[in-house]
């Protein structure tokens, strides 16, 4: 089964579940369209189009060449790790860690280069969001305000 068929099949299931949940909300209540009418219709539309898509389509060609799954996986871990670490470590440290880690361990940049870019980008993003936009970014365990 190709990736596009798997995705289409999953979307068809999502559509069916959504339509079933919408049905329970009420399609037509007190002589008026109920809160479930539109979600029900879109759930059915999603399911029907996804089923057609699963039957009809072939996998798209990736014109850029093969995907480096190891590298992609490393990035995925970095993204999730950043999301998880942002609150306990604080935005500044988490940002520094993400950029430094990505450049040093995934992109094989030198320590000095990774450190310098991480300091600049972390400082820049902190400055823009914390001071220019006044966003109360998570300070983390070190309470960096």
């Amino acid at each position: 089964m190709t990736m596009s068929r798997i995705s289409a099949s999953l979307l068809a299931m999502v559509g069916l579940v959504a339509a079933a949940m919408a049905w329970r909300l009420g399609i037509w209540t007190s002589g008026q369209p109920g809160p479930g009418l539109f979600p029900f219709a879109t759930g059915i539309l999603l399911s029907a189009t996804a089923i057609f898509s699963a039957i009809q389509t072939r996998n798209p060609e990736d014109g850029d060449g093969p995907v480096d799954f190891r590298r992609l996986g490393q990035y995925a871990v970095a993204i999730i790790g950043f999301g998880i670490a942002m609150k306990p470590l604080g935005t500044l440290i988490a940002t520094f860690g993400l950029i430094g880690g990505v450049l040093r361990f995934i992109e094989d940049r030198s320590r000095g280069h990774a450190f310098a870019v991480a300091v600049v980008l972390a400082g820049l993003s902190w400055g823009i969001f914390r001071y220019l936009l006044g966003v109360p970014l998570p300070p983390g365990f070190m309470e960096i305000q």
Binding site: F38, P39, T42, G43, L45, S53
Partner: peptide
């Protein structure tokens, strides 16, 4: 393909 675009339209509406 158009059918895939319609899948996305339906998902967006949902």
């Amino acid at each position: 393909p158009r059918i895939r675009a319609w899948v996305m339209v339906a998902l967006g509406l949902l």
